[in-house]
């Protein structure tokens, strides 16, 4: 009963509800405004762009900024490249993660814990140290300017393995034992029992990895030198670097091309993504 009386009190700090909303609205605007500004700039005419104080919403919406921006660089090609590399990367990374997570969770092996520690050690190593060695390896393999060059060096998975292993371990072990008694091989136990059970976390992991690969800039920048192999972030950066003599309205339109897929994914799955990140940090 006491909980009913006391439990209402939560660590909510010593300010009123209205003030709370004001603070949160301020920060929501501060974070959201740049995105709004990107959109509204992309819809303006060159004259409206160069006015001060600025116009918040254009008088007539200039949709053709998008088609002009699209033609400043081979954005169609960039899109194809980004999708191919991100999707194959996700498929490979998740498969690799699932296999090793299953091994670490469900296969008995003497040195299992040792190998797990070795794998975790990789988390501490900054990926930037690998830029030059990886470039040298890939140029020896003649993988520069190829999809596999963009994808393969980054499909090993520590985070994904860790996350899936936790999940596999949380499944009641009687399920795995039943599979063993029925004579299911480890591979079949993984594909028919472990993975279907892990569906919720698997979905979040796939989206998380996809966004990471879609946004990746540094590695594709290094490993592509030909325009037709560039991914969207690299292509977008090149558009600006080369000073194609395009106005801010076109640049913002081009930036929106890059953001749209991420925003769609985020819009539909933000709650799950946020939950996964919060859970991962608290447990890990």
């Amino acid at each position: 009963m006491a909980r009913l009386v006391f439990g209402k009190k939560r660590p909510s700090w010593f300010i009123g509800r209205t003030f709370t909303h004001l603070i949160l609205i301020f920060f929501t605007l501060a974070v959201g405004l740049p995105f709004f500004w990107m959109l509204t700039t992309a819809l303006k005419s060159p004259v409206e762009v160069a006015t001060f104080p600025p116009i918040w919403w254009p008088k007539t919406i200039k949709w053709d900024n998008f088609s002009k921006a699209w033609s400043t660089a081979p954005f169609g090609r960039f899109y194809i490249n980004s999708f191919i590399t991100a999707i194959t990367g996700v498929l490979l990374e998740v498969s690799i993660a699932a296999l090793s997570a299953y091994a670490f969770a469900c296969i008995r092996f003497k040195y299992r814990d040792f190998f797990f520690l070795v794998m975790l050690a990789a988390l501490m190593i900054p990926s930037q140290i690998a830029l030059i060695p990886n470039y040298v390896i890939l140029s020896k393999l003649k993988w520069i300017n190829t999809y596999k060059g963009i994808v393969i060096p980054y499909v090993s998975s520590v985070f994904g393995t860790f996350l899936l292993r936790q999940y596999f371990l949380s499944v009641p072990s009687s399920l795995y034992e039943a599979a063993e008694i029925d004579g299911l091989s480890h591979f079949k136990t993984l594909t028919y029992i472990a993975l279907p059970l892990a569906k919720p976390v698997l979905g979040t992991l796939i989206l998380y990895i996809f966004i990471g690969k879609w946004n990746n800039y540094l590695w594709p920048l290094i490993v592509t030198t030909k325009q037709r192999m560039r991914t969207l972030p690299v292509g977008l950066a090149m558009v600006r670097d080369a000073e194609y003599a395009i106005g801010p309205e076109h640049l913002m339109a081009a930036a929106i091309f890059v953001l749209v897929p991420v925003l769609i994914v985020y819009f539909f799955s933000q709650r799950k993504l946020i939950e996964a990140i919060a859970a991962g940090a608290v447990k890990g």
Partner: peptide, 22 residues
């Protein structure tokens, strides 16, 4: 509030940096 304030974690940094330049 949370969804908006969290969004830059996932939005492409190259695109975001360009808006900020502007």
């Amino acid at each position: 509030y949370q969804a908006i304030i969290f969004s830059p974690t996932f939005t492409t940094s190259v695109a975001v940096a360009m808006v900020w330049r502007w």
